[in-house]
Design a protein around this nucleic acid. Sequence first.
DNA 1: ATAAGGACCTGCTAGC
DNA 2: TGCTAGCAGGTCCTTA
Length: 273
Amino acid sequence: MPELPEVETVKQVLAPQIMGLRIADITVNDPKVVARPSAEEFVRELKGERIMELERRGKFLSLCLEGGGRIVLHLRMTGSLLLTPPDFPLEKHTHLIFHLENGRELRFTDMRRFGRFWLIRVGEEDLFSGVSRLGPEPFDEDFSAAYLSSALAKRKSTVKSCLLDQGFIAGIGNIYADESLFAANIRPERPACGLSVDECERLAAAIREALLTGIAENRMSAEEYLAGKGRGYRSRYLNVYGRAGEPCRVCGERLLRAVVGGRGSVYCPKCQR
DNA sequence: ATAAGGACCTGCTAGC
DNA sequence: TGCTAGCAGGTCCTTA
């Protein structure tokens, strides 16, 4: 479900509420969601640990622990992380519950069970979650028009496939790929190596702007987040994603849908070239 | 080496 | 109304 902006929302909402709290106990309803180590070890080693900080990298979230280790998690398509009072109705597909020392629960719910947790022990290198294979963070200095231009030039696939490749750039998914390409006036099926320097500059700026808009539009209070069950992301601000067949907000042309890189893609045939 | 396609899961919706 | 096919915002693995 969530891409960089939505994971950022999760982090911003949860961080102030769980920082400094100890994990009193953990309930694992589906051991499969713990990718590493085993679910038993995960529970044993985390009981009594204190959560110090939350970090986001791409679409991954890390709970940094007092002891120096970290819990890394990825929500994939339909995962959500919700902080609830203990008597809050239990959602279907709740696979993991962290019982915190103040009585509240941090619950992981995931209809499609794609989401995963990894425990990275003190001093251990995280070679398993995929964090180490991520490309540049879109707001870091190492992501620039120059990077985009030289990296795209080496690719024979479509520009959209590159944007979805987490090793190329971290955090973009289908929504923000389509939104960025629309803002940059570039068609998703264009070969990456065929983009001009000017187009790469527009795309780099469009990516950052689309993500910043997503973060701003999805900013919400803890109450709103809980009411939306951790899935109450907004979409009214999106210009193309989910709007195939509707008129383009810029030129009025009918938005088209095509499959690019195996993913449904929406674009404006007039604005995007 | 890169790219396409299937697998992993469940639920929703459109169409017959 | 009921069934089915197709689709869904992600990633990994196998195959070509």
